[in-house]
Nucleic acid binder design. Structure first.
Lengths: 236, 236
DNA sequence: GAATGCGCAATTATCATATAAATCCGGCCC
DNA sequence: GGGCCGGATTTATATGATAATTGCGCATTC
């Protein structure tokens, strides 16, 4: 617990613990501990407790009012796209429903990003995408982690858009892919289709937004169908 | 300055001032004031200053280390999709480039959302979309604010997806639309095309994702072309 | 008996001060 | 020249006190 981790001070560790607990649903909407209780519980001073609560407030997870106390905000107010909140969401129990929602989001983002990349990508950005594809090929031959390579490919495309809002979604795609691949591997020994990824790259290189978009979309639709099928049999 | 605004305490007001200043670029990467300087500058105690800095840290705008001081994070680390950060971005000087990036983002989000809405929308969500379209029609006859109605329409579709990640982007779409419409009105007396919006609604009602997606896309592509044309003449 | 206003109490908000920890910088030692 | 050490600066944490906010119960009034 008291491991000395650089950049991991007491406040930060409180934020992590509380954030994870809140997202997991450990606290009901009412009855969140008071400052005094939290301080006692974590053996921290009120300053630290208050600063941690403020950080969680900034992420939309908490709200505090005098006399009333601190309480968990309804889920609609959470900043789901905040990297921390997203990570906490991932670290809690696996959920097919959540994975589907992640993936539906990717379906909006990535095809359009690929199209935009076909328009905007410069030499360096293109090189990065190529490098990631190379890593995927190497991983297929047993050299390197296929998961890392796959993620690098998708992230490289987001960056190639040169649009900061798409770049912002790296975290989401990263998260979605990690649990996605964990899931698809469980279903079948499927490895990421290198051919499909190569098609995306070729379209971007050819400066063909429409084709890039279609190719990227195909990859995700494939995954989404798997997930929907799995949910069907789960609930059936 | 000391207006008693509910839910607008000293810490919050500090967060607003600093957040806006940072996003506007008033502070260079190095040379951000120390806690002591900030406290003096805003006539607040160190606790308040520290808590404000923590909230901005939680949004990715700042970072603090002992001895080194507090400094502004590079723009890539900002949580651009945080509602507050987004709002500060809007409140700073108008920029065609930023508007284009907002709109490119909408191009990823909204068509897919419309498609998803065609699959998932329930009675209530559909009614909300219809209601917004009604408001747009009324506004065209001079009854009510057309901007509000237009935004309500787009937001209603995001909610109709029943996917919390799309719902999360209400703020972005809201922001983008507000400056977008301010801009398009400046270019020409164009009012939002009710026909185009109606096409989206009909497709959703018909449970036709493909058509809904296409129709939503058409609306945004239209705006994007305007913006790109304007940027062309600006830089030419 | 119901509505209204008042005051108590609980909780966060703010302030003030003190101490600890981290780390940059300069100088010293080898 | 390079590594080690100490001082100084800044944030991190602790602590205690006071102010502001507001839910809730009680009394008061009609």
């Amino acid at each position: 617990m008291t491991i000395r981790t650089p950049g991991m001070n007491l406040t930060h560790s409180l934020v992590e613990s509380l954030g994870l607990a809140i997202v997991t649903g450990d606290y009901q909407a009412v009855g969140f501990p008071t400052e005094a209780e939290l301080s006692a519980q974590f053996a921290a001073s009120r300053s630290v407790t208050r600063e941690a609560v403020k950080m969680l407030t900034a992420k939309g997870l908490l709200t505090a009012r005098p006399r009333y106390g601190t309480s968990v905000e309804p889920e609609e107010r959470w900043n789901l796209l905040d990297p921390d909140v997203l990570r906490w969401l991932l670290e809690r129990k696996f959920s097919l429903r959540l994975l589907q929602q992640f993936t539906e989001m990717r379906l909006g983002i990535e095809p359009e990003a690929a199209g935009l990349a076909a328009i905007n990508a410069d030499k360096e950005a293109l090189a990065e995408v190529r490098r990631a594809l190379g890593q995927m090929r190497a991983a297929a031959d047993g050299e390197g982690d296929p998961l890392v390579a796959d993620i690098a490919f998708h992230v490289a495309i987001l960056n190639a858009t040169h649009n900061p809002f798409y770049a912002e979604l790296q975290e989401l795609v990263n998260t979605a892919l990690r649990i996605s691949i964990r899931f698809t591997n469980r279903i079948q020994g499927r490895t990421a289709s290198i051919l499909a990824h190569e098609t995306v790259l070729r379209a971007i290189e050819a400066r063909d937004p429409e084709a890039a978009s279609q190719a990227a979309r195909a990859i995700i639709v494939d995954v989404l169908d798997l997930i929907r099928a799995a949910r069907q049999t789960d609930t059936a």
